[in-house]
Amino acid sequence: MVTSRKYAALWNERGFTLLEALFSFFIVCLISFSIPLVIKGFSLVREEMLPPPYYQWTLFNESVRQETWKSRGMTVTNSGFSFILNGEKVTYEKYQDSIRRRVNDKGHEVVLQKLSGLSFNAIDGGVRIEGVFLDGKKLEGEFFYYGE
């Protein structure tokens, strides 16, 4: 009977028993060890959601090509280029590590980002843009205007 009374003290309702305390400690450890894994998973998902550089360049290339196609008169400088589209001055210029678009010298629309190198060169009837992304990928494009 002594042994049964000894084990009966482990299952009383006055407080936690050793078994309950160990189980609670196991649950707390399980949760605290899984938090870094969950955070790492979220950061991987966020990185995968960013478009790759060639996708950004393709979108930039098509939007600039459509705008310059209908534009009139183009001015090219070392830091960017501008043209007239529907009576408004549209400017694409280098801004820190990106290219931004402005209309009538107002606004700040980033159209291409994460560039380590960028150059604008005047060509006959347009502009040549050469860019280098932070990962070292080099891309280039020529944009011509056919307006008046």
Score class of each variant (00 low, 15 high):
residue 34 S to L: 13
residue 100 R to C: 03
residue 28 V to D: 08
residue 9 A to F: 03
residue 122 A to T: 12
residue 91 T to I: 07
residue 108 H to D: 09
residue 114 K to F: 05
residue 92 Y to S: 05
residue 113 Q to M: 02
residue 51 P to F: 02
residue 80 G to P: 01
residue 99 I to R: 04
residue 24 S to P: 12
residue 33 F to Q: 11
residue 92 Y to T: 03
residue 25 F to A: 13
residue 79 S to Q: 13
residue 98 S to D: 08
residue 12 N to G: 15
residue 122 A to Y: 09
residue 37 L to D: 14
residue 83 F to G: 01
residue 94 K to V: 04
residue 58 T to R: 15
residue 98 S to R: 13
residue 144 F to V: 06
residue 94 K to E: 09
residue 44 L to Y: 10
residue 89 K to T: 10
residue 95 Y to N: 09
residue 136 G to R: 13
residue 136 G to L: 13
residue 143 F to S: 06
residue 66 Q to Y: 10
residue 36 P to R: 02
residue 116 S to P: 04
residue 105 D to F: 05
residue 110 V to D: 02
residue 27 I to P: 10
residue 47 E to L: 04
residue 68 T to W: 03
residue 41 G to D: 08
residue 70 K to S: 10
residue 100 R to E: 01
residue 97 D to W: 08
residue 54 Y to C: 04
residue 143 F to R: 02
residue 116 S to Y: 02
residue 112 L to S: 02
residue 98 S to N: 11
residue 94 K to D: 07
residue 90 V to S: 01
residue 125 G to W: 11
residue 95 Y to G: 00
residue 23 F to D: 02
residue 55 Y to H: 07
residue 55 Y to A: 13
residue 6 K to C: 01
residue 53 P to I: 03
residue 8 A to R: 12
residue 143 F to Q: 05
residue 131 G to A: 15
residue 90 V to I: 14
residue 46 R to G: 04
residue 46 R to S: 12
residue 86 N to C: 00
residue 126 G to P: 05
residue 107 G to I: 01
residue 17 T to E: 13
residue 142 E to Q: 08
residue 43 S to R: 07
residue 105 D to W: 06
residue 108 H to V: 00
residue 91 T to M: 05
residue 42 F to S: 09
residue 104 N to D: 09
residue 43 S to D: 09
residue 53 P to A: 11
residue 131 G to W: 03
residue 144 F to W: 12
residue 104 N to F: 01
residue 112 L to H: 08
residue 148 E to Q: 10
residue 3 T to G: 00
residue 38 V to I: 14
residue 120 F to A: 11
residue 33 F to P: 04
residue 109 E to T: 10
residue 99 I to T: 05
residue 45 V to T: 10
residue 74 M to F: 00
residue 75 T to H: 03
residue 39 I to P: 05
residue 32 S to M: 14
residue 36 P to Y: 05
residue 66 Q to F: 09
residue 68 T to N: 14
residue 56 Q to D: 14
residue 79 S to K: 14
residue 64 V to T: 05
residue 135 D to Q: 09
residue 66 Q to S: 12
residue 33 F to L: 13
residue 112 L to F: 08
residue 41 G to M: 06
residue 7 Y to Q: 04
residue 122 A to C: 08
residue 19 L to D: 12
residue 78 N to P: 04
residue 34 S to I: 04
residue 28 V to L: 15
residue 39 I to Q: 13
residue 29 C to N: 14
residue 84 I to W: 04
residue 141 G to C: 11
residue 72 R to K: 06
residue 56 Q to P: 06
residue 39 I to D: 09
residue 109 E to F: 06
residue 27 I to N: 07
residue 98 S to F: 00
residue 13 E to H: 14
residue 52 P to N: 03
residue 101 R to K: 14
residue 79 S to D: 15
residue 88 E to Y: 07
residue 34 S to Q: 12
residue 26 F to V: 07
residue 87 G to I: 08
residue 32 S to Q: 10
